[in-house]
């Protein structure tokens, strides 16, 4: 079966309008993940519709706040909380914000530094 599986880099300004338009076109959140890169964090938001996958790739500086997509896609709350707690990504206005107490681990933001 042919299906889409793309990764598209977006800027912070383009990001929110893009998410809203995906919502309007009937896409849903399938995956949200953060990765550490030298200049900060790389956030991948994957959306699915039928068998297609589209990933929006956002690269942000370490202290750059990112607004939450839970206002548009409420079901992303668990994964946003996870990125905030494990990586220390500054995600603002999460609906159901656990404030870094989702996993309640003893070490703060373990994925932020190597080792």
């Amino acid at each position: 079966m042919e299906y889409l599986n793309t990764i598209e880099p977006v800027t912070l300004e383009q990001f929110m309008p893009e998410v809203v338009s995906l919502k309007m076109q009937g896409w849903h959140v399938t995956q949200l993940c953060a990765a550490r890169v030298p200049e900060g964090y790389e956030l991948s938001y994957t959306f699915g519709r039928e068998y297609d996958l589209r990933t929006l790739r956002l690269t942000v500086a370490e202290d750059q706040p990112v607004s939450s997509i839970t206002q548009i896609f409420p079901s992303a709350f668990l994964q946003e909380n996870e990125a905030a707690e494990l990586f220390g990504v500054k995600i603002e206005n999460i609906e159901k914000d656990y404030n870094g107490r989702l996993y309640r681990i003893s070490r703060e933001t373990p994925f932020k530094e190597k080792g």
Partner: peptide, 12 residues
Amino acid sequence: PSIGFVHRGLEK
């Protein structure tokens, strides 16, 4: 929900 009882951190 509150989870984290089985969190090991194996992705790291």
